[in-house]
Amino acid sequence: MNSYAIRVIYKYEMLRAWETLAQSFASPVISTALYFVVFGSAIGSRIQHIEGVPYGLFIVPGLMMLALLTQSIANASFGIFFPRFTGTIYELLSAPVSFVEILIGYVGAAASKSFIIGLIILATAGFFVPLQIAHPVWMLTFLLLTCISFSLFGFIIGLWATNFEKLQLIPMLVITPLVFLGGSFYSVNMLPPAWQTVSLFNPVVYLISGFRWSFFEVADVDVGLSLAMVLGFLGLCLAVVWWMFRTGYRLKQ
């Protein structure tokens, strides 16, 4: 195992976030604060409690998920796409590193950044609503698993994309709608029965539901199912990455 290589890739990626501090950490915090102002305070004050939880508090897990998913994908996809775009990937390919080491470096750094952002958003939320976390360990577990699996997904997008437009395509056209329709701002139980069934085909529903359960013990679907879905998605991403590396997809001619 080339541990020095993992270390320098990880450090390089984290340094990139540090040097663009405003973009990396401040922007998710600001956008989350805006959601709280609009949905939590302005509109939320006129909405009844949802399943016994005040609306402002109810949206905290969903907002965290929204930021985690978009940030994990953005960080990881850009991290591997940029060297491909500038051509500096040659160094990575000519170095005595295995694909597993490359993956640990890039995905590890992207997941770490999202994890930190998740905690910062949680702290920001604390300024607007009195936080309550029923199962802190499960909360952190869901947080970590989500960060890792969506960073892996972002890594796949970063390898697949051949230009900057494609890099934005999936986050904008797939992920954002899925998160918004996945119960970030409402409970799936509030929907008409037909739409509840449709929602069950949205994988993000399981993610948000499980995460929300760790806060309020309130869930749209069984928490075990949520955990299984996250792990399943993680496994799927790992399988795709393994195939990409094995075939040298978009990396080696």
Binding site: N2, Y4, A5, R7, V8, I9, Y12, L15, R16, E19, F82, P83, T86, G87, T88, Y90, E91, L92, A95, P96, V97
Partner: peptide
């Protein structure tokens, strides 16, 4: 390499340290 492929935002010292580490030294 033939092309001047360098990350635009890196610094000289950091990029050398990166290369050394990448090659397991």
């Amino acid at each position: 390499p033939q092309e001047l492929t360098l990350g635009a935002f890196d610094r000289v010292w950091n990029t050398l340290c990166f290369s050394r580490g990448l090659f397991g030294k």
